[in-house]
Amino acid sequence: MSLIDVEQAQQRLFSLSSAVEADDLPFAQAHGRWLSCDLMALRDQPWSDLSAMDGYAIRYAGLPGPWTVIGESAAGGDCALEMGTHEAVRIFTGAAMPKGADCVLVQEEAEIRAGQLVLTGEGPDRPGKHVRARGSDFANGTLLLGKGSKVGARHLALAAIGGHSILPMHRTIKVALFSTGNELVEPGMQGRPADLPASNGVMLRAMLTGMPVTIDDLGIIPDDLAAQTNAFRRALTADIIVTTGGASVGDHDLVKPAFEAVGGSVDFWRIALRPGKPLIAGRKDRTLFLGLPGNPVSAFVTATLFLLPLVRHMSGANDPLPPLTSKILTQDMPATSARANYIRAIVENGNVRPCASQDSAALLSLANANALIIRPPHSGPAKKGDQVEVILLS
């Protein structure tokens, strides 16, 4: 099976799945998820013409006054008062404008003298000054947020003031996770020099934190076909099965045959990517399978490019892929071969420099990095001062 490029692999992965079923969620559970349909306003905002300042509601044609104050309007209710050209109503921020008023004289520019309201400053310069017109933010029926929009704190505020208390989202995605390898032990359990603490599961669980997923961590599975087949069988109730290790072509790389043993079908295997070439994607009924490499940097890069975008895609996101930005290189870089290179790097003051070590097992350089430089396949040498595309790592 020949190598496929990163962009083609991402689109093929998305084509294996669609967004999971919709579910209405309260605000407390909606943050960080994606809308399953358009969200429309259920009310006008503001609900009426409201004052934007403390002062006096007046009619612009009555300037420069004086005026007779005929009443008061405070926030929280309608104003039944109706006023003439030389009448005013004491008004407070957020209060409804009385009938006949079209602007607000702020209190700093007015005084009461001998029972009359008089102008002491410049006053409003036009009708509508210091007035929030009814529906000026949005009207009933306005599109507030489109399908596939990610909902953050400001969007929750918009939905609430738009009249909603629950939001149309997609249900939580079930992810089953296990690591393969006879050399792996649980973190903190190292006994022999050859024991390798399992870091991928810890890392992937953290990468999925804050996403709309539940994780079933099956732990470490040895390099045994029957054991890995059984792990797949146990995980088939999940929406996504994620493995690390065992995805290459060695005698102990058993993930692919184990997945096929439970009836799974592999869609693609091996990506034109460095690090992360031995990546597997497939499906068994409605369950997606993503086999990530065992080297931790490769696992991180492929999770960034494939696992997290897959979760976003199945959650209904319009833009599931990681956002790209441009930075200026601070040193020369060599040409690339037939594989895209995703290079650990450090962004500082708008510039970017590669980390010294790019070994796929070197976690220290990954921990120190805050970005990945993207070098497409067959790219010529990059020079200091060139613009390069970068994925920022949060």
Rank of each mutant, 00 (worst) to 15 (best):
N295A: 07
R233C: 07
F306L: 12
L236Y: 03
P323C: 06
S315M: 03
G316W: 01
K284C: 10
G246K: 00
D239H: 14
G246W: 00
I271K: 01
L321D: 15
R283G: 06
Q331E: 10
R234T: 10
I343H: 04
P293Y: 03
I346H: 05
R283Y: 11
M314V: 14
F268L: 11
V266I: 15
E348V: 09
E348M: 03
K327P: 05
A281E: 08
F306A: 11
V266C: 05
A258W: 00
T243D: 14
R274G: 09
Q331G: 09
V249P: 08
R274H: 13
R233A: 14
G263E: 02
D253L: 12
L236H: 02
I328N: 02
A338C: 06
A238T: 11
I280H: 02
V301Q: 00
L254A: 10
L307G: 14
G294I: 13
L273I: 12
F300A: 15
G291Q: 01
G264N: 02
P320E: 12
A340E: 14
G276A: 10
P296F: 05
T237V: 05
P293M: 04
A238V: 09
A238W: 03
K327N: 07
A235D: 10
V262K: 02
T229G: 14
A261C: 11
V242P: 03
L288V: 15
Q228T: 14
A235W: 01
P257N: 06
P296R: 05
T330E: 11
A345M: 05
G276V: 08
G246M: 11
V347H: 03
P334G: 09
G246V: 10
F268D: 13
V311L: 08
T325P: 06
R270I: 09
V297W: 01
A235C: 05
